[in-house]
């Protein structure tokens, strides 16, 4: 992978693995039956829906191949994935429809 040595990639794998394990073990392993404060649970609950859209937004709006201008296939297939997922409540179906929309629109363009 360009820009990353094998050692750096392994460092990321191990560090992410250790940190993720620590998160999963935390309360179950060390604190036993004590409960988390409500305000903290309330914030943790939103981590996936708070982080993942921010992660993908730049790549959808300004994809690498398009010189920083808007690209119809990228935006349309993102909306298809979002819409199908919300409507059908199925991540797998949404991903398949989104990828098909992307491939189809690129073939038309």
């Amino acid at each position: 992978m360009t820009g990353w040595t094998g050692a750096e990639i392994w460092l990321i794998i191990v560090a992410l693995g250790v940190a993720t394990y620590a998160i999963r073990f935390s309360f179950l392993g060390l604190i036993g039956n004590r409960e988390l404060p409500d305000w903290l649970l309330r914030h943790l609950r939103y981590t996936p829906v708070a982080i993942l859209p921010a992660l993908v937004t730049p790549g959808v709006l300004w994809p690498a191949g398009s010189d920083g201008s808007l690209s119809l296939p990228h935006i349309a297939s993102a909306l298809v994935a979002l819409g199908v997922g919300y409507w059908r409540k199925s991540a797998v179906l949404a991903a398949i429809c989104g990828v098909l929309a992307f491939v189809g629109l690129n073939a038309l363009a």
Binding site: Y46, P48, V49, L52, P53, L55, V56, G59, V60, P63, G65, H74, S77, A78, A81, L82, G83, V84, G85, Y86, R88, K89, S90, A91, V92, A94, A95, G98, V99, F102, N106
Partner: peptide, 22 residues
């Protein structure tokens, strides 16, 4: 351009999780 499957997959995971106004 398989890399674009990643943002699509993320949105596919997020959408069913949009269960409440919050």
């Amino acid at each position: 351009d398989i890399a674009f499957a990643v943002p699509v997959a993320f949105l596919a995971m997020v959408a069913p999780a949009l269960r409440t106004a919050a």
